[in-house]
Design a protein around this nucleic acid. Structure first.
Lengths: 303, 303
DNA sequence: AAATCAGTTTGTCCAGGACAAACGACAAAA
DNA sequence: TTTTGTCGTTTGTCCTGGACAAACTGATTT
């Protein structure tokens, strides 16, 4: 799976920023403060990061996304980092484990079989159960394996693509444009993950909800104008694990202030879980099944 | 459509980088050299960009993506910039104009009607003609209107989402996993636009090609390992207008060196058009119909 | 349990200098 | 005419080292 790479002995600071998601300023200040990373320099004095340091930075990034603090992880060895990752993940280990070997198909690049298996599961379970019982656990398992470094970029991309193909096809087949409520789905500009949105849409569409997804990365002001201009009843936002909780809360409160009270705001995803108290006027959706509960509540209040 | 925005009088340098795609370093050095932008400062001495300067920066960004150089555009007034944009776009104006008012549906947020109209066109024309005659001109028209500032973020997102829904559904319905050649589709890490890939996939799948799309933003080394591990015959890359030509060429040549000669590389999109001479060993695909020509050529050489 | 507060950690911003890659224009060679 | 080479200019990115506010930690009080 990982054939050795002949060229590319070292990466520039821009390449490391792209590959790890750590800002150039952050990389430089870590070097100054912690002595890591410790890149070589080229003839012009510019940083050259060896691949193993980039790999370690990737591990560190994942740990920080899960709440660890830099001082605790930057000094650690690779083995210690892997051990910390295991510790992070054990609590959730029960959730995975029984997704029918689909994860194996992802890991082995069996894309054709994965596509077939996903479609079969969809047919057997129906869209909502398929999303809640198959796609969501599988996405969690892939995310977890990604954290551990057991899947790499193409495997994760492959998984996302195949799931998108299946879900978008199924959502398109429902095609309800007339129902109520009217829901606008999107993410904030820093959030790139699209699967959360698609899963939410797939849960809502079979209930006769008129969903419109704008995809990812919509600026706040544009969310507002789209919501007002389109006559929507609800704006739904999705946040992945990696999204900073503080930023999510600030953004949501700002959006709440930008929208009239007649438009509800629903927020879902790991970054806002259990943040209900700090989000007055916003419905925190705890999971996919809670989406349906939220829908029931809304309909009870809007007869 | 653009209701006035109450809050947000000014944006931080990080927000401007996100909204315009211009790096923080670039924004500072323009200020130093050209005197524009000229942001205010907050109590802490940090830059605060007023909205109209951000808007002007967006115009400038688009002009630079189309080949203009900063010194020529940074000093100009908004009116002059708009005039330059018109000049840039007139040559292509003939291409748009007859896409059945679909552009109007995008502009007016008539998402439901847009979805219906797209599906109707797909049924009427078949997948390949639908892509080449409807989606591609419409995408060009949206890109052009985006350049002129006539559509904004939510409208462009809406368009992309609806087209993705239709295309992915249609592609999934074909579901050929056994054919030849086997084609791996993706983009380089800096490229985010996914429609080019989907259109290529939609052209190839009806021909019995086994396509696998990894989506956007795959690192070079991962493209290599995926191509080798999956037994692919062809790797297809897509580049949008905004992609720097030099970077595309360097990346393609590097990838060419990473892959055995038995695996062909196809490159398509505005950034590589007419760059055939500088890309030995790479098939430059000039347009969607040329994709089919490339496929015929490949099949002629691999009986 | 929840709120307050001091101390520490940490990411982002700033200034101004440097340099190589990319560009434009013009001249020489095919 | 087209291609190739040269040279000055433009332009984006990188560098150093300092500063500061926001976020977090943990002890203390309500």
């Amino acid at each position: 799976m990982n054939a050795p790479i002949p060229s590319e002995a070292a990466a520039s600071i821009a390449a490391v920023e792209r590959d790890t998601g750590l800002a150039k300023d952050t990389l430089r200040v870590w070097e100054r403060r912690y002595g890591f990373p410790a890149p070589a320099r080229d003839a012009n004095g510019e940083r050259l990061y060896p691949p193993e340091q980039v790999e370690k930075l990737r591990l560190i990034r994942r740990l920080i996304d899960h709440g660890k603090r830099p001082a605790r992880v930057v000094g650690a060895s690779i083995e210690e980092l892997v051990a910390m990752l295991d510790e992070c993940l054990c609590p959730q280990a029960g959730a995975a484990g029984r997704e029918d070997g689909l994860l194996e198909l992802v890991r082995l690049h069996r894309s054709a079989e994965l596509a077939v298996a996903l479609r079969q599961a969809l047919m057997k379970q129906g869209l909502q159960r398929f999303v809640a019982d198959t796609v969501a656990p599988l996405a969690a398992a892939v995310g977890e394996a990604w954290m551990r470094g057991e899947v790499d970029v193409p495997e994760e991309h492959l998984f996302t693509e195949q799931v998108q193909n299946v879900l978008r096809g199924a959502i398109g087949a429902h095609a309800t444009h007339e129902g109520r409520p009217r829901v606008l789905l999107t993410t904030f500009p820093e959030e790139e993950h699209v699967l959360g949105l698609l899963m939410a849409e797939a849960m809502l569409v079979p209930e006769g909800v008129a969903c419109l997804s704008l995809g990812t990365r919509t600026p706040l002001a544009d969310i507002r104008s789209a919501a007002l201009g389109g006559g929507f009843d609800i704006v739904g936002l999705s946040f992945s694990v990696a999204y900073p909780a503080r930023q999510a809360i600030d953004g949501l409160l700002e959006l709440r202030a930008l929208l009239p009270d007649t438009i509800a705001i629903w927020a879902g995803g790991a970054a806002v879980r259990d943040k209900h108290k700090r989000l007055p006027g916003i419905r925190v959706v705890g999971g996919l099944d809670d989406t349906l509960a939220a829908l029931r509540d809304w309909r009870a209040e809007h007869p």
